[in-house]
Amino acid sequence: MVDGYFFEDDLHCRSELTVAADNMFLGEGGCVAEEGLLEHVAQTSAAHIGHIRKMEGQSVTLGYIGDIKRAVFTPPMPAAGDTLHTKLTVVSQVGNVTLVSAETSVDARVVLTCRMKLANENEGDAR
């Protein structure tokens, strides 16, 4: 759920996603469900964390959403063909938990702002 990932610096990145007609989060009204926007933010975060780990010579491990806070959705939600633009900021990081703040827009209109924590597995964690 990320077509383009653009690294800015360790604490900032941007991403894009054009909603495909067969996106699994499309609802009956033809719009992406709010959960889909959150998944896009989670995958943007995962791409950023993975990119930094790689640059630091660490292996990329699986990541999970730990929590979501202060999420505000502003309708209308995007439809198939719309392109989402996400700006992500790393707010803080402790060990393998990263707190990010994200803003997702469609045509310069903000549709989602939220904070999210991503927990990455430690290298060599038992699967």
Partner: peptide, 14 residues
Amino acid sequence: DSLSLVDMVALVNE
């Protein structure tokens, strides 16, 4: 816990 500890760190920074 490990998640809310990050909130404390962020809060102190902000």
